[in-house]
């Protein structure tokens, strides 16, 4: 297995976006790309990352391999790469390590690191194809700010989607808060658009703690998609055009 990115920045951001939610995980490498699927330790959220082979500078995977890695260790290794350095990952069949090579574009500095692989029992969950009742596309910075703001007032947020607006509400010991975002088009700046596709109105409650973990992916993508159906996990997708995506799934809080 050998995969090379032209710039380390994307991989650094991907690891920063998931490492606090899932500690150790397996990267599944096939000839179509690298992916990981992992639950957080309390089994409330699920993370699915796909890095497509087309998104790499070069990519070769002769035999499918699952590499168990501590994401905190991977983050440490990647700290040693400059944002504009190229990154090459190499793993030989049966080897218990993965190699990282960072090269500056002027080629005057090359650094190499070897990370020990771990044996990880991963339980892959089947994610059923879902026709969502409401899909909201919005700037990822708006979602990050909304979740951060409401976290000051409560632990949970109720997200209610109607035809032309989406409302985020919370309440706690000191008071209540809500943020309403209205659909708005923008032909010259599609990344600032708020688009709502509503088949059925949806209202669901989620733990803000997890949403704040998810918005660590905001630096990867200008836009985010919230896919919701009543009594179903929320899917928060950060698309990376040409490269792949990070999808987070979060189980709702439900009144017993």
């Amino acid at each position: 297995f050998e995969a090379k990115w032209d710039h380390a920045s994307t991989l650094k951001k991907v690891i920063d976006a998931v490492k606090d939610l899932i500690g150790d995980t397996s990267w599944d490498c096939t000839n179509t790309g690298m992916s990981l699927q992992s639950m957080d330790s309390s089994h409330v959220a699920l993370v699915h990352v796909l890095l497509k082979s087309e998104g790499f500078e070069s990519y070769r995977c002769d035999r499918n391999v699952s590499m168990g890695i501590s994401l905190n260790s991977m983050a440490k290794v990647l700290k040693c790469a400059g944002n504009d350095d190229s990154v090459t990952l190499r793993h030989e069949s049966e080897s218990s390590v993965v190699n990282f090579a960072f090269e500056s574009h002027k080629e005057e500095r090359v650094s190499e690191f070897e990370l020990k692989l771990m044996n990880i029992d991963t339980e892959h969950l089947g994610i059923p194809e879902t026709e969502y009742d409401s899909i909201i596309k919005m700037p990822s910075a708006d979602l990050r700010r909304t979740c951060a703001d409401l976290s000051q007032f409560g632990d949970s947020v109720t997200i209610s989607c109607a035809k032309s607006d989406v409302r985020f509400e919370t309440s706690g010991d000191i008071g209540t808060g809500n943020v309403r975002l209205s659909a708005r088009g923008s032909s010259d700046k599609p990344e600032t658009e708020i688009a709502i596709e509503m088949i059925n109105p949806v209202s669901l409650t989620f733990a803000l703690k997890y949403l704040n973990f998810f918005t660590k992916a905001a630096p990867l993508s200008d836009t985010v998609k919230l896919c919701m159906s009543n009594n179903h996990p929320l899917c928060v997708e950060f698309p990376m055009p040409e490269v792949g995506y990070i999808r987070y799934y979060l189980a709702p809080k439900i009144d017993e």
């Binding site: 309390s42 089994h43 409330v44 994610i127 949970s156 709702p252």
Partner: peptide, 14 residues
């Protein structure tokens, strides 16, 4: 009080 569900209530091991 709303109860936090597990993601495993919805997605089963494949």
């Amino acid at each position: 009080m709303a109860q936090q569900k597990s993601i495993m209530n919805y997605f089963k091991a494949s």
